[in-house]
Amino acid sequence: MSVAPDHSPTMARLTLSERLSVYAPVLLIIAIIILGFLAIPSNSSWLTLTVSGLAMGMMIFIIASGMTLVFGLMDVINFGHGAFVSVGAFVGVSLILALQHLSGSPSLAMNLVALFIAIIGAMGATAVMGWAFEKVIVKPVYGHHLKQILVTMGGLIVVEQLIIVFWGPEEIYLMRPAALQGSITFLGAALEKYRLVAVAIGLIVFLGMRYVLRRTKIGLIVRAGVENGEMVEALGYRLRIVFIGVFLAGSALAGLGGVLWGLYQEVVTAHIGNDTMILVFIVVIIGGLGSVEGCFIGALMVGLLQNYVAFLEPKVALISNIGLMVAILMWRPMGMIPVVKAK
């Protein structure tokens, strides 16, 4: 019989790489920005591209955050998330077109009121729709991933077709509110005003979500539910009700994203949701399913990379995001910030 080794605990400082690896995803964004700076010859176009990349990333984040939380909390994978984006875009755009006297006037305040009404209208519509979607489409297939994917995909098709029934098959072109058109010049770079607004809204949403998730009781329950739902239920919380709330909020955020995206493109079609979903899936996967922070970082990376590459080599832009996803999955197979541990 061998003798058990002496118990000799050691206190070792974490190495630099171990301490850095926590921040690696954030550092990666900075790395992409620096690489972009080095690769793009003109500084002013680099600044323009960075801002538009950030704006695009913020919009994708707004859309994707709901989906990642819904997955984390209830293990529901919603392929129909794009339907909320489409409906949000159509409702918002219709409202802006209806409020022509507000959105057409040169005053910034009036424009923002129009934008605000459009956003509230779209978020309200998509929240109601999310509630119905959860009741009719998602609820009967809890716990079956395969059926969830198929049924929510079916829901997406039906919603897209209903949009065509109500709004007609043609795409709707629109003008942004008057004061948000054009761009301002900063350090010799032209920055579109609307993109700055989109970045601001995205930041507000991210900080708001962080506040709710980290500082409030409901956020605590949601985060705990993502990590280990059974335990939260055992403690007496009805996760099902929390989940409906998160689903509603996620749908409303997708609606908000739809309005912003529609105004960004200045044209909306029934496929707008499905088109954004490709980027959303990439973001959700590389961020780590269930992680809001990962989703935020992933969205910024995708937005920046897409804009830089589109400037340097337009035809590669599409593949660049898939390349990014492959690289990240090789590095961290569960995504950058994996959250869902218990499932």
């Binding site: 994978i77 392929f79 991933h145 994917i149 979903m277 490709i278 899936f281 990439i282 959700v284 996967i285 399913l289 035809k315 599409l318 593949i319 995001n321 898939i322 996803m325 492959v326 999955l329 090789m330 197979p333 569960m334």
Partner: peptide, 25 residues
């Protein structure tokens, strides 16, 4: 190899992304 070794549902998302990219390409 990329998606199935982690989670089978990744496969659905990744195939959707790749297929759309290929169609556009």
């Amino acid at each position: 190899l990329f998606s199935l070794r982690v989670r089978a549902i990744f496969f659905a998302m990744i195939t959707l992304a790749v297929a759309s990219a290929v169609a556009v390409l």
